[in-house]
């Protein structure tokens, strides 16, 4: 009798495990916590390509990773940058905030200067200025 109960309980636990929500699943329209709309993003590389833009003088600094989360009702972003050259690089960056309709949710940010040591990684973080900002672009420019 006892053995039957154990088998039944084990089977129930197994089923519950199979039917439970798998960790790591994201809402539609999001990848790595970042809003992507209808874009097809299947890797971190795709996400970086979608979100990082170069303006003005091009830089060799590469964005390698990007993760987003919500802090209250504001979007919080961590972007990892990599300088794989053997020289110190100077760049500037800013975020462009976009609202639900695809319009600018905030005025243009100030360009923020950044120094990156040779062969180094750096994570820059940002918080959206308003809860109207539901999407963003990270803009990089060389300052050399």
């Amino acid at each position: 009798m006892n053995r039957t109960w154990i088998v039944v309980l084990l089977a129930a636990a197994l089923l519950a495990g199979c039917w439970g929500t798998k960790p790591g699943f994201e809402k539609a329209g999001f990848a790595y916590g970042c809003p992507i709309g209808d874009a097809k993003v299947s890797s971190m590389q795709d996400l970086v390509k979608l979100k990082v833009v170069s303006e003005g003088k091009r830089t060799t600094i590469q964005a390698t990773e990007m993760r987003c989360t919500l802090t209250g009702d504001l979007l919080k972003i961590d972007a990892s940058l990599n300088n794989d050259s053997s020289r110190v690089k100077r760049i500037s960056y800013k975020y462009r905030w976009i609202d639900r309709e695809g319009m600018r949710a905030w005025e243009e940010e100030t360009w923020k200067p950044l120094l990156m040591y040779e062969n180094s990684n750096l994570t820059i973080n940002a918080v959206s200025p308003t809860n109207k900002a539901v999407d963003f672009r990270l803009i990089l420019m060389s300052q050399e």
């Binding site: 802090t71 209250g72 504001l74 500037s92 800013k94 243009e108 940010e109 100030t110 360009w111 923020k112 200067p113 940002a126 918080v127 200025p129 300052q143």
Partner: peptide
């Protein structure tokens, strides 16, 4: 561009003012 990086001299400039204001505001919002 009023928001470009200004490096004419190393005294307190427009970029410093804008960086401070933006950084403090975003931090305070949290």
């Amino acid at each position: 561009d009023a928001r470009s990086v200004e490096t004419v001299t190393n005294t307190f400039g427009s970029t410093d003012l804008q960086l401070i204001a933006e950084s403090m505001t975003r931090s305070m919002l949290q």
